[in-house]
Every structure is written in structure tokens, then in C-alpha cells.
Simulated scan of single mutants.
Amino acid sequence: MQPSPDQNAHDDVTTAFRAYLQAMLDGDTHALDNLLADGCTLTHITGYVQPKDEWLSQTRAGQFLYHGTRAKWRLQMTMDYAREGDTWSVIRSAATTW
């Protein structure tokens, strides 16, 4: 039995999300650039909505460092994905506290 289109989409987005997390941990801005759609925005816990290119530039400069758990943060991450051809890309990411 073939997986449903919904299950395939779920699996593909889950794979893309895991690649995003790994790229963040690795500091791999080239991979992040490919995983984030052009025009993607990232909303920080401060409410600042940052364009993709600005965030990548600051990440390359070492202003954002992501790593495994070293402290407890009460964060909720919401990410919106869109399919571009055969690829699922992040179009919006927002972090909030809870």
C-alpha cells in the first residue's frame, strides 16, 4: 500500500525540519540558506521580524550560536513551510515564550 499524499508531505516536512535543526547546530549557513525560502522571515522572542538575509549574515558573523541544551528556555517555535517544486522550504519561523 502506498502512503497517502498527506503522509508523504508530513514525512518530507519532518525531514526538512530535521535538516534545519542540524544545520543550525552545525552553524551551516549555506544549508540554512537552501532550507529557507527567499523572502523567509524569522520572528525573534523580542517580536523583531528579521529578513532571512540579515539573519544569515549575523549568523555567519557569529552573532547567533545554536547548540544543544545548556540552559532551559521556555520557547515555542512555529514554522510555516511551502512546497517549491519537490522541496519543502521554510517561509516563516517565529519563536515565542510560554
Rank of each mutant, 00 (worst) to 15 (best):
D53P: 00
T41N: 02
Q50Y: 04
H10R: 12
V49Q: 07
W55F: 12
A9K: 13
V90N: 12
A19F: 01
M79G: 09
M24I: 10
S89D: 03
R92I: 01
T41A: 02
A9R: 14
I45W: 04
A71I: 11
T97F: 15
D26P: 01
S93H: 06
A37R: 00
Y81E: 03
H10Y: 13
H30T: 15
L56T: 13
A82S: 09
A95S: 10
P51A: 11
R74S: 12
F17C: 05
G68V: 08
D53C: 01
G39S: 11
A16Q: 06
D28F: 00
A16Y: 08
T43D: 12
L75M: 08
D33E: 12
T78H: 06
A16E: 05
Q58T: 08
L35Y: 14
M24D: 02
D33M: 02
V90S: 09
K52W: 07
M1G: 15
D12W: 02
R18S: 12
W88V: 01
W73V: 13
T46W: 01
Q7N: 10
D28S: 04
A31Y: 03
Q63I: 03
G68T: 10
V90K: 00
V49T: 15
Q7D: 15
T78Q: 07
Q63W: 03
F17R: 02
D26G: 05
N34K: 11
L75E: 08
D11Q: 11
V49Y: 01
T29V: 13
L36G: 05
H10Q: 13
G68E: 09
G62I: 05
Q7C: 03
D12R: 14
P3L: 11
H67L: 00
G27D: 01
Q63R: 13
Y66W: 12
L75C: 05
G39L: 01
P51N: 14
G68R: 06
E54K: 05
W73E: 12
T14V: 10
R74N: 11
C40H: 05
M1C: 13
G27Y: 00
V13R: 08
T59Y: 07
G85E: 06
Q76R: 11
D11L: 03
L25W: 02
V13D: 15
Q63K: 08
A94H: 09
M79S: 15
K52P: 02
I91F: 06
W55E: 00
H10K: 09
P3V: 15
T41W: 02
L35E: 09
L75H: 13
T15H: 07
A19V: 06
T78F: 03
D86C: 08
L32S: 04
G27K: 00
T87M: 07
D6W: 05
K52C: 04
N8C: 14
E84R: 09
T97H: 14
T41L: 02
R18C: 04
Q76P: 00
A16T: 09
T59M: 14
T43E: 09
A31C: 01
L21W: 02
D6A: 13
L36P: 00
L35K: 04
I91S: 13
D12H: 07
Y81C: 03
A94S: 12
E54F: 04
D33W: 00
T69C: 08
I91M: 06
A94Q: 14
S93C: 02
N34H: 05
A16V: 12
Q2M: 10
S93W: 04
Q22H: 11
D53G: 03
K72G: 13
G68S: 10
Q76M: 07
H30R: 08
D28R: 02
R74G: 09
W73F: 04
G68H: 07
L56Y: 08
